[in-house]
Design a protein around this nucleic acid. Sequence first.
DNA 1: ATACCTATATAGGGTGTCCGATATATATAA
DNA 2: TTATATATATCGGACACCCTATATAGGTAT
Lengths: 103, 103
Amino acid sequence: MAIYGDEESCDMRGMLGFLILFLLYEKKPMHGQEIADELAKRRGDRPSPGTIYPAIKGLKDAGYLHEEKKIGKTISYTLTPRGMKAFHVARRRFTKIFFGVLD
Amino acid sequence: MAIYGDEESCDMRGMLGFLILFLLYEKKPMHGQEIADELAKRRGDRPSPGTIYPAIKGLKDAGYLHEEKKIGKTISYTLTPRGMKAFHVARRRFTKIFFGVLD
DNA sequence: ATACCTATATAGGGTGTCCGATATATATAA
DNA sequence: TTATATATATCGGACACCCTATATAGGTAT
């Protein structure tokens, strides 16, 4: 059971999309690699392209992300109003569940 | 993609064991149904027996839980020193990842 | 033009969490 | 005893997140 190893007690699966919404909520325009950078700082390990881009695509297909501008192959994303609302709902739920957990 | 439905933006899968550690860290002796009660209050829906008991067993097998006392079929659990340490490690990681997310 | 680096993209599948269904056991009540 | 309610337990599998490997394309330099 990987979750209960010596190093980690939870794998936090299912939080990637939520984290991306949060990052875009905080720092408006970000592209894929910037998101990966920020996740690397927070999680300790950097998500691979095969992790980050499908996650972005999922959020985009849900109508939560707007492609802002393209410079070369770089694509910047911002939250749509729908994405903003989805994040607020998710954050309220997250806060209720994990109230009191943080140091 | 179930995660990005209208109601929820993340399923928070992979957090159940971590939450149980947290609940036992806060309120020392709890048995299965008390844990289910508390999770019901936080998550909104009550975990079924098929969810909660395998999760407890996983933590028990990892050496994180100590069976305190049995009254009838009721079993109360507390964190072992090892479980305490595992929770501290997990909470530090959790806090780093989700810093700034809560309302 | 060629080489190289970076950013984006998809497929395919491993992996493990979580849940429904089901079973067992204890305590209490009628 | 019989019935009922509660607590614990296991199994079997659906589900889908995430990763490895691979591919494509734009920018830049030589």
